[in-house]
Nucleic acid binder design. Structure first.
Lengths: 220, 220
DNA sequence: CCCGAAGGTGAGCAAGCGCTTAGGTCTGCG
DNA sequence: CGCAGACCTAAGCGCTTGCTCACCTTCGGG
């Protein structure tokens, strides 16, 4: 039995892929601290003490404080991209795939808003090379959503005059959930995901019925 | 002739209401620095040198670095609230007022994205009492948008199952423009405003025509 | 029984931080 | 002219920061 390996990709336990247990405790502590106060306002002493260690222990597992942020950001963006591609690659109409994408993407940002806040709002603190790596992942997330919208327009399901702009707006709307979501609030992550999926669908669906094979270019 | 007084409310020049000219230079420098690096990563020396002054000059006009942030945040939130209430209080249908509100609110966040970034994303750095004051202004912005949506539902123009949730989503969508907008990008602030006004309207309009006095609840 | 690697600690260094203070230089006015 | 007040600077204080280093403990294997 290898329970640790079963969750090695972070499927079961959130940070299962961070392998030395002490390194994981430090990383989880860093996520909490960064989310609460922001990267620059968090001290290495604060991270270490949250993990129940001395300040020096951090540097056994990570070269710098920035490396911690990079690891968090990388794992988080990988997860976010995986959620989006899973929804985009499944079978179904564009509307079904978009609904699935928004619901799961928003659900993740709400349920794991602590992580998402760090992942989405602390990019500026990354070193140049690390930030470039992350920006590439975000470019791929953008392309994934754009593909769904393009498919919907092609099939006559959607009416989207500005596909790149609408893609940006949809992603922006979903990401910003991490900023305002409050676990003590009235809504569950699932409820927010459902609400947002509905709102996004309203943004893009064509007024008329969705004929599966209509190669027309209706004016408005 | 009192040209300085004409712009005393910040109508003409952006920071016209900040009165000693040296204090305004410092405040503008702080906005730029905070927007680029974030509040905590910005040093008082950096602010002063951007304003062409020595580090000590800052403390002649402001008691602390946090007071600078508070002043920026207060002025920015006043302006944002004024934009929203101006659109909400004008005459016209709910759809017209919502379009106006989103277009001007988004336009401001895009055109003045440097300021807006500080105003919207550095709340955590404020002292408790100052943050409470700002949160109250945001509560009023929320109420202003919610009122437009409620009016639209009442008049049968809008179909919004979850008014508070949709209000949150609309404001979140608009505010997040400050995070991604790039002055070097393809879109002008006005174009983004128009795009967003259209997207938001699609979120809320009822499928059927907007009868001004039709108390029916026909589903489709 | 010893050993060396892995993982941890206490003390502390150099640098940079927010902010203060003593003192200088203008300018308007009696 | 003299001088008060507004404005600004050079120097630096006390403290915190990210990070280092010499040393300690634990433990599986020859």
């Amino acid at each position: 039995m290898r329970t640790a390996e079963r969750t090695a990709d972070g499927e079961g336990m959130p940070w299962g892929e961070v392998t030395p247990e002490a390194a994981r405790r430090l990383l989880v502590a860093a996520v909490e601290a960064f989310a609460e106060r922001g990267y620059h306002a968090t001290t290495t002493r604060d991270i270490a003490s949250r993990a129940g260690m001395s300040p020096a222990a951090l540097y056994i597992h990570y070269k710098t404080k920035e490396e911690l942020l990079h690891r968090i950001s990388r794992i988080g963006h990988d997860k976010a991209l995986k959620i989006l591609t899973a929804a985009a690659d499944r079978e179904g109409t564009a509307a079904e795939r978009l609904t699935d994408a928004v619901r799961s993407f928003v659900g993740w940002h709400a349920a794991r808003h602590t992580t998402a806040r760090v992942v989405q709002y602390e990019l500026d603190a990354l070193a140049d090379e690390h930030r470039a790596e992350i920006v590439e992942l975000r470019r791929r997330s953008d392309a994934t959503v754009r593909r769904i919208l393009q498919d919907g327009v092609r099939d006559g399901e959607f009416d989207v005059p500005d596909v790149p702009g609408t893609t940006l707006a949809v992603l922006s709307l979903c990401i910003d959930v991490a900023r305002w979501f409050n676990a003590q609030g009235r809504r569950t992550p699932g409820e927010v995901g459902t609400l947002y999926a509905d709102l996004v669908l309203r943004m893009v669906v064509a007024r008329e019925g969705p004929p599966p094979s209509a190669g027309s270019e209706g004016q408005k």
